[in-house]
């Protein structure tokens, strides 16, 4: 699937694009099973909420005490889906199609996120993420860089969120 580039105002302030789909899973298991799962997945699973880990193109974001979001290349989806079978009590559910992920980058990215997010995004360290709310819509936010974020929302909310991001980006470009 190719990246869909939307007609956001390409101001110097902030740009918004939709990331192409790779493969995304929701992984649930108890702390006691974490090490076994790490070995099976070839990926460390951070034990603090909001932390991420990366290895070999696979990435984990801890969203809850027993919950991780796994992002892997599309080609590895089947391998990951079967990686934990047998032995480890867990739930591993593919959610690639559940979500649309926006990439928000540029000096205005913090301002743009602040049109809809009540928490202080500035305090989110680079390389960390959180499930939060954007204008009433549940979203998972990851700070990829100082001025670079991904914001993932469920698919049916995407057009609403995208339109608000576009409106906000236009407002920020005006510098009012």
């Amino acid at each position: 699937m190719t990246a869909q580039i939307h007609s956001f105002p390409r101001s110097t302030a902030v740009a918004v694009t939709v990331l192409p789909l790779e493969a995304r899973f929701s992984l649930r298991l108890r702390a006691a099973s974490r090490e076994a799962a790490e070995a099976a997945l070839g990926l460390p699973l951070p034990d603090r909420i909001g932390r991420t880990s990366e290895q070999g193109g696979r990435r984990a974001l801890c969203l809850g005490p027993d919950e991780w979001r796994l992002d892997v290349p599309a080609a590895e989806a089947a391998a990951v889906a079967g990686a934990l079978e047998g032995g480890i009590p867990h739930a591993l559910v593919e959610v690639t199609d559940r979500e649309v992920t926006f990439l928000i980058e540029g000096p205005g990215s913090l301002d743009l996120l602040a049109i809809g997010i009540a928490r202080d995004v500035r305090r989110l360290e680079v390389g960390r993420g959180a499930r939060t709310v954007f204008d009433g819509v549940q979203a998972v936010l990851v700070r990829e860089g100082e001025e670079r974020f991904t914001l993932a929302v469920w698919r049916s909310y995407a057009s609403h969120v995208e339109e608000l991001l576009r409106q906000g980006a236009r407002e920020i470009a005006l510098g009012l």
């Binding site: 649930r28 027993d66 009590p89 867990h90 739930a91 593919e94 959610v95 690639t96 559940r98 049916s156």
Partner: peptide, 13 residues
């Protein structure tokens, strides 16, 4: 209980 719940409403059309 060893069971987990995942919303897949939007995963499937």
């Amino acid at each position: 209980l060893d069971v987990w719940l995942t919303s897949t409403t939007e995963q499937w059309a």
